Amino acid sequence: MLKKNLAQLNYNRPISVDSYDLLNRASQLFHKYEVDNLLVTEKGQPIGILDIQDLN
């Protein structure tokens, strides 16, 4: 696996949350999609990553 380059890997579409959404929305997405990280966007542009541990 470590000998593959990034182009050879399959990627899922990132789950995103808008920077103006409530943290409750992020919590719902974490549970619904069973992910640990969400892409944070503002005006459709990525601005950061929210980790599930950030909610604790």
Rank of each mutant, 00 (worst) to 15 (best):
Met1Phe: 14
Leu2Asp: 00
Leu2Glu: 06
Lys3Cys: 15
Lys3Tyr: 14
Lys4Gln: 13
Lys4Ser: 02
Asn5Glu: 04
Asn5Ser: 10
Asn5Ile: 15
Asn5Cys: 13
Leu6Lys: 08
Leu6Ala: 11
Ala7Pro: 03
Ala7Gly: 12
Ala7Lys: 13
Gln8Met: 12
Leu9Ile: 09
Leu9Val: 09
Asn10Ile: 13
Tyr11Lys: 04
Tyr11Leu: 11
Tyr11Gly: 00
Asn12Thr: 09
Arg13Ser: 13
Pro14His: 14
Ile15Leu: 10
Ile15Tyr: 08
Ser16Asp: 07
Ser16Thr: 14
Asp18Asn: 14
Ser19Glu: 00
Tyr20Ala: 13
Asp21Asn: 14
Asp21Phe: 07
Leu22Gln: 07
Arg25Lys: 14
Arg25Trp: 05
Arg25Gly: 00
Ala26Trp: 10
Ser27Glu: 10
Gln28Met: 07
Gln28Leu: 01
Gln28Asp: 03
Phe30Pro: 07
Phe30Tyr: 05
His31Gly: 02
His31Lys: 01
Lys32Gly: 01
Tyr33Lys: 02
Tyr33Thr: 07
Tyr33Arg: 03
Glu34His: 00
Val35Thr: 11
Val35Trp: 04
Asn37Val: 03
Val40Trp: 02
Val40Asn: 00
Thr41Leu: 04
Lys43Cys: 00
Gly44Thr: 06
Gln45Phe: 15
Gln45Ala: 15
Gln45Asp: 13
Pro46Arg: 11
Ile47Pro: 08
Ile47Asn: 06
Gly48Lys: 08
Ile49Cys: 05
Asp51Val: 06
Asp51Thr: 08
Ile52Asp: 02
Ile52Thr: 05
Ile52Pro: 00
Ile52Glu: 01
Ile52His: 02
Gln53Ser: 05
Gln53Arg: 12
Leu55Gln: 03
Asn56Leu: 14
